[in-house]
């Protein structure tokens, strides 16, 4: 599904990501973990086109997407969320969803101006898909509310929803439960599992080990921008290099 080959990123002499290789296969949940500053978010930014890699290539379903702009990559079916919850906070919940669906209704100016039949069809489709996704997220009741009126967990859900509404092939989640308490974390974890069960491949960056262990199929461990381990949760948990890298941090907390 997603293949990363020899990915390297240097910032003014500092190597943030070094010769990274990994695969995300169809239908799995893959976690990228690692201590703070290991380069996890940088990897996401490289995959989604926010940053340009210094070298290496990225393939989405065997198509080379290296060097494409973020909106081009997004419209090829790769969606993402951001580490700090990123929403259109001046708008309503439903508007956020419609914007998330925008690239599917790539009918710009003229169709909108003249309300062409195609536009009508797409507009209807967009509303239906937006409401469908809101139902899935459990936010249908809040669709008319403005974003700041939502709780933190609801905002996290909405952020996932914006990425999900366009039916992506693969979803990249950057710390989807960051800042949430245990109960909320469990609910969001369930949501991610549900998303996968509906057929969307998921790649997640996370800190919370317990959540990862119960959720994901495979783990890639980064340290100082390099992959130090890869495998099932059980394998990674007993890997000596990983334990050393996390020195002191409880791996199976």
């Amino acid at each position: 599904m997603l293949r990363v080959e020899n990915l390297t990123k240097r910032f003014e002499g500092l190597v943030a990501v070094h010769e990274l290789n990994f695969n995300v296969t169809q239908g799995e949940i893959l976690a990228i973990i690692g201590p703070n500053g290991a380069g996890k978010s940088t990897v996401f930014n490289l995959i989604t086109g926010t940053l340009k890699p210094s070298s290496g290539r990225i393939f989405l379903e065997d198509q080379n997407i290296t060097g494409l702009k973020p909106y081009q990559i997004a419209s090829r079916g790769l969606s993402r969320t951001f580490q700090t919850t990123s929403l259109f906070d001046q708008l309503r919940v439903i508007d956020n969803m419609l914007i998330g669906y925008k690239y599917r209704t790539q009918l710009g100016f003229w169709n909108t101006l003249f309300h062409t039949p195609r536009w009508r069809a797409h507009q209807k489709e967009a509303f239906e898909r937006a409401m469908e996704t809101l139902n899935f997220l459990g936010l249908a009741q809040k669709s008319e509310q403005f974003v700041p009126a939502l709780s933190q967990e609801e905002q996290k859900r909405l952020a996932i929803g914006i990425a999900l509404v366009s039916k992506p092939k693969i979803l990249l989640l950057d710390e989807p439960t960051g800042g949430l308490i245990q109960e909320e974390t469990d609910r969001v974890t369930d949501l991610i599992r549900k998303i996968r069960d509906q057929g969307t491949t998921v790649c997640v960056i996370e800190h919370k080990m317990q959540m990862i262990m119960g959720l994901v199929d495979r783990i890639v461990v980064l340290n100082y921008g390099e992959k130090i381990a890869e495998g099932s949760p059980a394998e990674v948990k007993s890997d000596q290099t990983v334990i050393r890298a996390y020195l002191g941090e409880e791996v199976d907390a």
């Binding site: 969606s79 914007i99 998330g100 925008k102």
Partner: peptide, 16 residues
């Protein structure tokens, strides 16, 4: 409005 409100996110959801 998406561009006005949050350009990086607009970019990330596929808006040119």
């Amino acid at each position: 409005m998406a561009v006005r409100n949050n350009e990086p996110l607009a970019d990330a959801v596929g808006i040119n």
